[in-house]
Design a protein around this nucleic acid. Sequence first.
DNA 1: ACCTTTGTTTAACACTGTTAAATTATTTAA
DNA 2: TTAAATAATTTAACAGTGTTAAACAAAGGT
Lengths: 199, 199
Amino acid sequence: MASKDRILRLKEETRVNILDAALLIGKQEGWQALSMRKIADIIEYTAPIIYEYFANKEAIMMELTKKGYCILAKAMKAAKEAQDTPAKQLEALWITYWNFAFTEKELYQLMFGIEVNCCVFEKSIPEIEGPANMLTASIKEVMGNKNPTEDEVCKWYYTFWSIVHGLISINHVRQSVPDGINEQVLKDAIAGIIQAIKE
Amino acid sequence: MASKDRILRLKEETRVNILDAALLIGKQEGWQALSMRKIADIIEYTAPIIYEYFANKEAIMMELTKKGYCILAKAMKAAKEAQDTPAKQLEALWITYWNFAFTEKELYQLMFGIEVNCCVFEKSIPEIEGPANMLTASIKEVMGNKNPTEDEVCKWYYTFWSIVHGLISINHVRQSVPDGINEQVLKDAIAGIIQAIKE
DNA sequence: ACCTTTGTTTAACACTGTTAAATTATTTAA
DNA sequence: TTAAATAATTTAACAGTGTTAAACAAAGGT
């Protein structure tokens, strides 16, 4: 019976509509504002219907996470194929990763557990500057004999901060970083950057 | 009147109790489980009195964030003073930062907007491995002539991932990264790591 | 026409942050 | 000591959340 197919197609369509609605809310209002009733509003149903398609709210976010990984993988594949040497390919892969994180900002936040809501203050909390000031001061000292520009110090500060914070974040959300890798990456990176700063 | 002082002291005490209770819940159940009524339960009051001490829930988390920065600053100060050369000091600062992120894991997550709840699946989503596989494969290719061990490839993979993800995270939660720094850090880091891989 | 299955909604439960009103306790004044 | 004023605390409520069970309506098959 063809009507069965039509109904299946309709069901698949509302499944997609649910995901689209959820992504829309995530983009417009942030993930913390995502609610089942808001999704229901957009797809013009009542909330319980969503549970016919997804086990719960988290399952919807999981599906979007999956979608994010697919989009990212596709973009990376294309980027790699556009280059000829291995080194260029590797660079292109990471540039693509970087670009994805901003063109699909909300998906990236979902995929890697980044919260934007709290601690966006920045101003109004002087304590935030304590560690930052100490680090930039220390970097300046290491570069003492070379009269570095403010921009250069800033660059090294963010280079340090990025790798340390990045490694921490990865460890916090995923506990499966292979044994010993943390120490190796951290030690080598710090030593490497200090070396690069000096010369 | 001394009774005024006693009352002020009591008020200060419950203020501290509120913060302690909030931190306890954050540590035991995660920040997403923090609620005003749970705090009230612990300090043996009802929820509305918390609003005599803090404007709202976010203000409590802000205060804990501030506390986190103070603890971190203090530890970093001590770490720096324990070293004599600028290079050693710089290294000690970052090691201290790293250690803080794990000994005060929950505070760190509050300070830098790390969500742990979602996307902790890891298993059960094969899509997650697509990008990872492409990147490690590409790294292997760049190292093609040197027969690298699995561990070495893994190290470089995490080195790359950490710095890129770290820089992205920082940009997502704080929009105040100075102009041009992103490009500089990203480009130099990628080039530097590829260089280090090759030699 | 009736029965069964499916799709959909309503109502409810146990929560959440937050506020206003009511209540209790404490301090002050007479 | 008692009465009034003030402060401390709680209760009740509102609007929202995720989720489930029951009620209802629509369609399908016999």
